[in-house]
Design a protein around this nucleic acid. Structure first.
Length: 258
DNA sequence: ATGTCAGTCAACGACTGA
């Protein structure tokens, strides 16, 4: 069973690439982020024609998240419960899989912009609220996967040039602490369960030839609860779509479970 | 400061966010 995440940076622009990728990879679940389209603009027919069901939380211009799956979703949650945040950044559902009920949470965590920005404070507060909600979810759902664009590179090995990035947004200590708090809930960064190539990244800036120089960061993650981590036998970053014409700046991450 | 995408508004180029 394959569980994936992909920040598509506009589903309108990337839809043909998403459909190609679904046909090739056949993931069972994929969380998409940065749809950048309103709720009523979601390409439901095209996704269904590709053999997938979808739940989505759209927003004009910014943000927006979806889960595509072969199975029907139940107990769907939109945004962090109790949150009156206008930004559409989280969607969750339960799926009745061969491995038992799977709780899948898909997040587009705030970017933060810079340490001086109000958006940085918003990011840290958002992680706080997410972590408290997750602390309940981990108790309710033994088979829990949280996928998405976390906008945090957890360690220096996830950064192409740690010296240049030191203390910057996406790698700063408070952000890494926020990520560590998620791990402390009993979650595992599935990518690090396995030996991986050095300089493995999931996002490369469009500017200054970031991808060609492999000047990237690993900020897209599949976190798994312990029962799922024990069933995880691979986690890879699929650079294929990053090499397309007109690519997203992110590559998909795919965890395989059995 | 740089640079490149994508979206909006509104009118072809400015702005914001990433």
């Amino acid at each position: 069973m394959k569980v994936a995440t992909w920040n598509v940076n506009s589903l309108k622009v990337r839809l043909p690439q998403v459909l190609d990728w679904l046909a090739t990879e056949q993931p069972d679940f994929v969380g998409l982020q940065e749809l950048k389209l309103d709720q009523d603009k979601f390409p439901e027919q095209a996704i269904e024609a590709a053999g997938y069901r979808a739940i989505w939380l759209g927003q004009k211009t910014y943000n927006g998240v979806a889960i595509l799956s072969k199975l029907a979703a139940t107990d769907v949650v939109f945004n962090i419960p109790g949150d009156d945040d206008a930004q559409k950044r989280l969607i969750a559902a339960t799926y009745d899989t061969a491995l038992g009920p799977l709780r899948l949470i898909n997040v587009y965590c705030p970017n933060g912009q810079s340490l001086e920005s109000d958006k940085y404070q918003y990011k840290l507060a958002w992680f706080d609220r997410m972590a408290s909600w997750l602390s309940e979810q981990v108790l309710t759902y033994p088979n829990l996967a949280i996928v998405g664009d976390y906008n945090i590179a957890p360690a220096d090995e996830d950064v192409h040039d740690p010296k240049r990035w030191q203390g910057q947004v996406l790698v700063s200590a408070p952000e890494r602490d926020a990520f560590a708090r998620l791990i402390d809930l009993g979650l595992t960064d599935s990518f690090r369960l396995f030996e991986q190539p050095e300089k493995s990244f999931s996002w490369w800036d469009y500017r200054l030839n970031g991808y060609k120089r492999n000047a990237g960061l690993r900020i897209d993650h599949v976190l798994l609860s312990k029962p799922l981590a024990e069933r995880c036998h691979a986690c890879v970053i699929d650079r294929g779509p990053r090499e397309n014409e007109q690519p997203s700046d992110h590559a998909p991450v795919i965890a395989s479970l059995r």
